[in-house]
Design a protein around this nucleic acid. Structure first.
Lengths: 163, 163
DNA sequence: TTGGAGTACATGCGAAGTCATGTATCAGCA
DNA sequence: TGCTGATACATGACTTCGCATGTACTCCAA
């Protein structure tokens, strides 16, 4: 009803601002964060696994670390070689494997996670108030909720929901 | 100000929501966008160059495409080989080069840019109102403004402590 | 003017990612 | 049961990126 034309410009400004903010902060976190010897993407896997009681499958991790299936497979292989995760056979599906944290992997996740959370909190609160953070969180959730759920780039028409 | 403890959780929720939203949309744009034969990162270079009358230097592009100096150098070399950009000698600095769009590069940028802008607008407006987009844009700018400005990691022996 | 430190860019090399494809398993149907 | 297509994962070939380093140029101070 209102001017659709003008909102295109506004929408792109908002996207670009969000994009740059994200990029800027990711850089800051990568650069002077306490990552120890785990790369940010590796930490992403450990973080995702930390909340999964029965482990996760390779395909589940794809959405968490923004990588292709092949990339996740190799990343998990590296983490396994370093003793941070373990590959177990999936009891329900002979093709799949369940990735779980080893106790060392859990230690690393907790240690890095705490430092990272502090860093994130510092970066966010130095710019936004609590009320604004709440609003930003809601915006983020709304954007994800409004997105078409199929994210896989191999099976193009996978319409399953995030568990 | 308010309880720092509780706001740590909120700040991390906001960060994660923003992170996921960005990742989700980037995926969507990459997957079913009209990129033609230019990768998203390559488009980032063309986009940055589109607004620069006198071209940009390699070091200017670093912040735009989120790559190291070496990465930008190679990326520009590829684009040059494909005839989309051109390297000119910088009249003011013999070490530097000014990257400018060729006419073909400008065409590609415009075509891809229009389609991309429409896609971005669609994704943003389907979740947020105009007022919310404005707020989100302001949040993004605030986050960038509050960040420690120079995060250049391209100078090899920069003053950083490897933990 | 000149020597040394700093900056802009390029490049060798290894790490890490994607694409295409292969193997094993699952699911549905005759 | 046997056949067909889809799914989960691994892997070879290739591309791309970062780190370390090299080269050429600029700037400044003595």
């Amino acid at each position: 009803m209102t001017a659709v034309r003008g909102s295109t410009r506004l929408a792109n400004e908002a996207w670009e601002a969000m994009f740059r903010a994200q990029a800027t902060l990711v850089r800051e976190f990568e650069f002077d964060g306490d990552w120890g010897d785990v790369a940010p993407r590796e930490y992403g896997v450990l973080y995702a696994l930390a909340d999964a009681e029965d482990g996760l499958r390779i395909t589940d991790l794809i959405d968490d670390v923004l990588l292709t299936q092949a990339g996740v497979s190799r990343l998990v292989a590296r983490l396994e070689k370093r003793g941070l995760v373990e590959r177990l056979a999936d009891p329900d599906d002979g093709r799949a494997c369940r990735i779980v944290l080893t106790s060392e992997g859990r230690d690393v996740q907790r240690r890095v996670g705490r430092a990272h959370a502090r860093h994130v909190a510092r970066a966010m609160t130095r710019a936004l108030t609590a009320a604004e953070l709440e609003t930003l969180r809601d915006f983020g959730k709304a954007l994800v909720a409004a997105a078409p759920s199929a994210t896989s780039q191999h099976s193009a028409s996978d319409s399953r929901n995030t568990a």
